[in-house]
Simulated assay, not measured.
Amino acid sequence: MTPQQVVLTAQTLLLDWGDGPLRLTHVQLRAACRCSQCEAARRQGRGQTPAQDIRITRVEPLGHYAVQLVFSDGHDRGIYPWSMLRQLAA
């Protein structure tokens, strides 16, 4: 389900499905990336903690089911389904 409101702030992504806003930090979202490169790095024990100054520079909608986030470190391969974001914020 697509949130009613999506707001990108300096340090958070605010999502609201009508039952109260949920906030996810840019650092938290970069660490949660599920792209193949990030997943492989985690499986190989090479997962990294993102820099604390990482920022989301763009939010690209992907239909009604997800967004693609582009980060200040150039990473742009992760797809973030709305259901995953809601669960991550809970």
Rank of each mutant, 00 (worst) to 15 (best):
D73P: 08
G74Y: 11
A10G: 13
P81M: 10
A32H: 07
C35D: 04
G47N: 12
I79S: 11
A40R: 14
Q48R: 04
V27G: 08
A66I: 04
H26K: 06
L88S: 05
G74M: 09
P21M: 10
G47C: 05
R30W: 04
H26R: 01
P21Y: 01
P81F: 13
D53R: 14
R86D: 11
H75S: 13
F71E: 00
R46N: 13
Q44Y: 01
G47P: 12
I54T: 12
C35V: 03
A41I: 10
W82E: 01
R30A: 02
M1S: 15
C35L: 07
R86L: 11
L62S: 15
A51Q: 15
L62N: 12
C33R: 01
Y65N: 14
V7M: 09
V7R: 10
E39D: 09
Q28C: 01
V27A: 14
C33D: 03
H26Y: 00
L24V: 01
I56D: 06
Q52L: 15
C38V: 08
R55W: 07
P21V: 11
Q4D: 14
H64L: 09
A10H: 13
W82D: 05
Y80Q: 04
R42L: 08
I56Y: 02
F71S: 03
W82Y: 13
I79A: 12
D16N: 13
A41P: 10
T9W: 06
Q11M: 10
V7A: 07
R55K: 12
C38T: 06
R86N: 15
T2F: 02
Y80N: 07
L15R: 05
E60L: 14
V70N: 11
V70R: 04
M1P: 14
Q44G: 07
G63S: 02
T9E: 06
A89P: 06
S36Y: 03
R55L: 10
A32R: 11
C35I: 09
G47A: 10
Q28F: 00
T49L: 06
A40C: 07
R23I: 02
Q48K: 06
